[in-house]
């Protein structure tokens, strides 16, 4: 029986879709059978991040309404044959689906997949309720900014009110140089404020932009963000992985230039 994980945040633009794409691809690289569902009806974007936008025939609403079978709507990934995407509908709105229908769909997918990752829309309305309806666990993505952390707190409260037992936190786009000079909250600060356990810290990495441009998730690459995402995938599978030293980038530079200063 597979596990259903919702990736949510409250605030938009903090990296839910990027996280879903990378963590899902990471799990597939670790030989798990994975399906990613874009639940943001009307604002489809997981398909472009995955680079699968040209292969869409049917979508989530088609499946829910019975226009097609699930397997006809699933799009196989370019690189990993055990990774699938169920795209969202672009021309419908969030009320086209109910929480009960989403739960039924995810329960069906559990039979065939190890992990079902739901990319949740921003906000706390119908789309959010749809996405969390069938989920066993939740991953809350935030950035170290007051607006994102405040919304994350609200989301955590709503998840708890909906009996979500397993809620973990990803602090995205950390900039260690700013944390060091006291101008950005650290992942520990954010964790302390939100009072939930961390499952990953992802540095702000320009490689993310490049990989999104290309439509190929960077998980597993040698970049810091690529390694951070792979570690999150492993932690989801229950492995105990130590956190990355995000200062590595600066230590690389100090290897090059540091000796002159000393």
């Amino acid at each position: 029986m597979g596990e259903v994980i919702v990736i949510t945040s409250g605030k938009g633009g903090v990296g839910k879709t990027t996280t879903t794409a990378n963590v899902g691809t990471g799990l597939a690289m670790l030989e798990k059978k994975v399906v990613l569902i874009d639940t943001d009806i009307g604002l489809r974007n997981l398909d472009v991040v995955m680079g699968l936008e040209n292969r869409i025939v049917y979508n989530l609403v088609d499946v829910i309404e019975g226009t097609c079978r699930i397997r006809n709507a699933l799009i196989k990934d370019k690189r990993y044959p055990n990774l699938y995407l169920l795209p969202s509908a672009q021309t419908r709105d969030k009320n086209a689906v109910t929480p009960e229908q989403m739960k039924k769909l995810t329960d069906e997918l559990r039979e065939e997949f190890d992990y079902i990752l739901l990319d949740c829309p921003a906000g706390i309305e119908q789309g959010f309720r749809n996405a969390i309806a069938g989920a066993d666990r939740a991953i809350v993505v935030t950035t170290p900014e007051v607006s994102a952390v405040r919304d994350a707190d609200r989301i955590i409260g709503l998840l708890e009110a909906n009996d979500m037992k397993d809620i973990r936190l990803i602090v995205n786009r950390i900039r260690m140089d700013m944390v060091k000079r006291g101008d950005m909250m650290s992942s520990d600060d954010v964790c302390e404020i939100l009072a939930i356990d961390l499952i990953g810290v992802v540095p702000d990495d320009e490689n993310i932009v490049i990989s999104t441009n290309q439509g190929e998730p960077l998980v597993g690459s040698d970049s810091l963000a690529g390694r951070a995402y792979m570690n999150i995938a492993r932690r989801i599978m229950g492995e105990d992985i130590p956190y990355l030293d995000l200062n590595e980038k600066s230590s690389f530079f100090s290897k090059l230039f540091g000796k002159h200063k000393r």
Binding site: D153, M178, V179, G182, M184
Partner: peptide, 26 residues
């Protein structure tokens, strides 16, 4: 500038957040 700026903006953010979350949660 660093000398005069005793408190980093991150601790300001933390303090503000703690306060706003108390009333949010209530």
């Amino acid at each position: 500038a660093d000398f005069f700026r005793k408190k980093g903006s991150s601790s300001v953010a933390k303090d503000r957040l703690k306060l706003v979350l108390v009333s949010d949660r209530a």
